[in-house]
């Protein structure tokens, strides 16, 4: 039983990471209307930037913030160099371009850091024990950080002028334009936010596991699965679906084995697409 609970907790943590990345994906989808396949690579950039910051300063907080910042900058740069140019083209163009952007990011990181693994050299901490369940203090911090980030994103979306405008553009881009809403500023904010959220997911993933150039790309299937399961373009759905997916993956691991964890995400993705293409939360529409 305690083993089961430990798996569930571990699943919750990886679920929050998946959920954050799915949120980054779904934010872009809701407003820019395409699935950004470079989302995983923004995670990787964030993780590498965080390791760099952590190694330089010794502070995981500063490292993490640097990761967020670099993630946001990467999002904005890729928008200005690539996705802005493709606006108004069929969304498949942007999707293909995003695969290319991801490829470039992975290659550049590979050239700079090599393809070996890096880790955050965090001091080992003895796990807490509640009854028979072991809880890693780091996991709690990761969970709290993820929840805090989610709270900030939802506050931005629902309680700030720029968030309201993002949701307006997601809802009806043409109407937004004739209402005098400048799409550039909205897109700028959107890509900064999406990049930062993805980067944070990468940082948290990097703390829990290892950092290597393919780490984010490898996460893409579960992240897509979560975004689809949550109802694409639906931020709350993406996060909840990420958590569900993470927990299911972890709990299933003893039965299906580690190798098939990814296959499980893929199966969930397929089943959702077949049975409930709109996802758990209804309409295939914009951010709301």
């Amino acid at each position: 039983m305690s083993g089961f609970l430990e798996l569930a907790i571990s699943g919750l943590m990886s679920g929050l990471v998946i959920g954050l990345a799915a949120l980054a994906l779904t934010l872009v989808f809701g407003v820019a209307r395409f699935a950004n396949a470079a989302t995983g690579d923004f995670m990787t950039i964030g993780a590498y930037a965080a390791v760099f910051g952590f190694t330089a300063t010794g502070s995981i907080v500063i490292g993490g913030l640097l990761g967020l910042f670099i993630g946001a900058v990467s999002g904005v740069i890729s928008y200005f160099l690539v996705f802005r140019v493709l606006e108004g083209r069929p969304s498949v163009s942007a999707l293909l371009a995003s695969i290319g952007v991801g490829f470039i990011i992975r290659s550049v990181l590979g050239v700079i850091y090599g393809h070996g693994q890096q880790v955050f050299q965090l001091p080992l901490v003895r796990p807490w024990r509640y009854f028979d369940v072991r809880i890693q203090p780091n996991d709690l911090k990761i969970g709290a950080t993820a929840l805090l980030a989610l709270l900030v994103v939802f506050l931005v979306l629902h309680a700030t002028p720029i968030g309201r405008r993002m949701r307006a553009v997601a809802d009806d881009p043409m109407l937004a334009r004739v209402s005098g809403i400048a799409p550039r500023k909205v897109m700028f904010a959107l890509w900064a936010m999406s990049g930062a959220v993805a980067a944070l997911a990468g940082v948290l993933l990097g703390i829990r596991t290892v950092i290597w150039p393919e780490m984010g790309w490898e996460m893409l299937i579960p992240v897509f699965a979560a975004a689809v399961l949550g109802g694409i373009g639906h931020p709350v759905g993406a996060v909840l679906a990420g958590v569900i997916l993470g927990v299911v993956q972890e709990i299933a691991t003893p039965y299906v084995g580690f190798t098939y964890k990814l296959a499980l995400a893929f199966i969930i993705l397929l089943v959702v697409l077949l049975v409930r293409p709109k996802g758990l939360f209804g309409r295939v529409e914009g951010v709301r």
């Binding site: 931005v156 700030t160 002028p161 720029i162 968030g163 309201r164 405008r165 949701r167 307006a168 809802d171 009806d172 043409m174 109407l175 937004a176 209402s179 005098g180 809403i181 400048a182 500023k185 700028f188 904010a189 900064a192 936010m193 529409e285 914009g286 709301r288």
Partner: peptide, 28 residues
């Protein structure tokens, strides 16, 4: 009629107000 269908009536009107500050993410 076109409206921001998922935004409330109040948010629909607020979204249309010309903004100076608060238009940039950083301002928030």
């Amino acid at each position: 009629p076109r409206e921001f269908s998922h935004l409330t009536v109040r948010e629909n009107l607020m979204a249309a107000a010309p903004g100076q500050a608060g238009e940039r993410l950083i301002d928030a």
